[in-house]
């Protein structure tokens, strides 16, 4: 039984499309979307939100400070 629910915030204008967040997401919650930002970089999206644990590994990897994760709900 999963104990936490997390989510991510993506700051699209900062993203440079390196895909580190997608590749290293430990629960495979992220994927590359069909969306591109103004600079033409392909953005990540929280494809399976329920899988996100808010571990913030995406935030730790993101070289452009464009994504970070956090826990939104905890089960007591």
């Amino acid at each position: 039984m999963k104990k936490v629910q997390g989510t991510v915030v993506i700051k699209a204008d900062r993203c440079k499309g390196c895909a580190f967040c997608v590749d290293f997401c430990p629960t495979d919650a992220l994927q590359l979307s069909d969306q591109y930002n103004a600079k033409g970089y392909r953005l990540p999206e929280l494809f399976e939100p329920e899988k996100c644990t808010g571990c913030d590994l995406c935030g730790l990897y993101c070289p452009d400070f464009a994504i970070h994760g956090f826990i939104i709900k905890k089960v007591a």
């Binding site: 999963k2 329920e50 935030g59 400070f65 970070h68 826990i71």
Partner: peptide
């Protein structure tokens, strides 16, 4: 999925620590 019967704590949005 979260356990429907468990007590949930809502946690506010957190800034990117960087």
């Amino acid at each position: 999925m979260l356990d429907q019967n468990a007590v949930e704590t809502e946690i506010p949005e957190k800034e990117n620590p960087v």
